[in-house]
Amino acid sequence: MKYTSLQLDALKEVINIGGGHAATSISKLVARKIEMDVPAVKILSYHELYQDILADNVEVHAVISGIVGEYGGIVLFVVADDAVAKLAELMLGSSSSDKAVKMSAVSELTNIISNSFLGAIGKLLEVQLQSSLPVIQDDYFGAVISSAYVALDQYDDQIMVIRNEFTYAKERLDASLFLIPETGVIDRIVKSLGI
């Protein structure tokens, strides 16, 4: 997997636009300012991924949506336990002790984030992209992320990690949005950008 620094910067800018639209959508929905960090676009081994991003044995809630349109892949929203309660409270306007209610709120939030994210990227690349209905999975981060890549027939030791993080009131939300494209999609995006 070889890409130039210019190509990676261009991909980062595409993801930045998509993530910015997603953060704006969340802010409008919850009537509070949600910000997005500069996105990460890195090529890492799984070992590096678990060191740099999140340990493989951390339990997470993952909301998985397929990408429907000219480009295929998965949008994966990974949320730690404490962030589920915070995001659900933002969505519902009050706290809830019911796990099903909290996860339903986070699932709906993910649906909005994914479609906003993909819509902005699709507009930039002049293609139609949207997400399928989300599926919730509770598991260890290592199991979630590796099964997502394997589902797309990506068995390489090196993977491209495309990730956005969000913050609320200067506090980092322990939630990350991953874009996991099908094999060949990144090459097509780079080509469409003329790089």
Rank of each mutant, 00 (worst) to 15 (best):
G93V: 01
K99N: 14
Y3C: 07
S5C: 04
G142I: 02
I113C: 06
F117M: 15
S104E: 11
F178Q: 04
S107A: 14
G20V: 06
E108W: 12
S104Y: 05
R163T: 05
D157R: 15
V30N: 10
I195F: 13
F117D: 13
E13W: 06
L6Q: 03
E108D: 15
V41I: 09
D52I: 02
S104F: 07
A40Q: 11
D52H: 03
I121K: 13
G142F: 11
S104C: 01
G194P: 05
A62R: 12
V101M: 12
A88P: 06
G19D: 06
K2L: 11
M103R: 09
I53M: 14
I136S: 14
K123A: 11
S107H: 11
N16V: 03
S97M: 06
A151P: 00
L76D: 08
S131M: 01
Y155G: 08
E182D: 09
A40T: 12
A31W: 09
G119Q: 08
V84T: 08
S95I: 00
F141P: 04
N164M: 11
V127K: 15
G66L: 06
A148Y: 04
A80L: 06
E13D: 09
V190T: 14
V185S: 06
P181N: 11
H21E: 13
T110F: 08
N57P: 10
D157A: 15
G69W: 11
I186K: 00
I180R: 14
S65A: 15
V161K: 00
L44T: 04
A120W: 09
P134A: 15
V68Y: 13
L6I: 12
L177E: 10
I67E: 05
A22V: 07
L193M: 11
D153T: 01
L44C: 05
V144H: 08
I145L: 13
N115I: 04
L11N: 12
S94E: 15
K99M: 14
T183Q: 07
V161F: 09
I121W: 12
K2P: 08
S45C: 00
S65H: 06
V63W: 05
K86N: 08
A23E: 08
L54A: 02
L109A: 00
F166H: 00
L125T: 03
R163Y: 00
L133I: 12
L177I: 08
T4G: 08
A175F: 09
K42H: 10
E70R: 01
R188A: 12
I26V: 14
I53K: 15
K123S: 12
Q137P: 01
G122I: 03
N164H: 07
E13S: 13
K2M: 02
V75G: 07
I162Y: 01
V58I: 10
D187Q: 12
Q158T: 05
S176E: 00
D56A: 12
A80F: 01
I186Y: 01
E182A: 03
S107W: 14
A40V: 11
M91C: 06
S65K: 13
R172V: 02
A88S: 15
R188G: 03
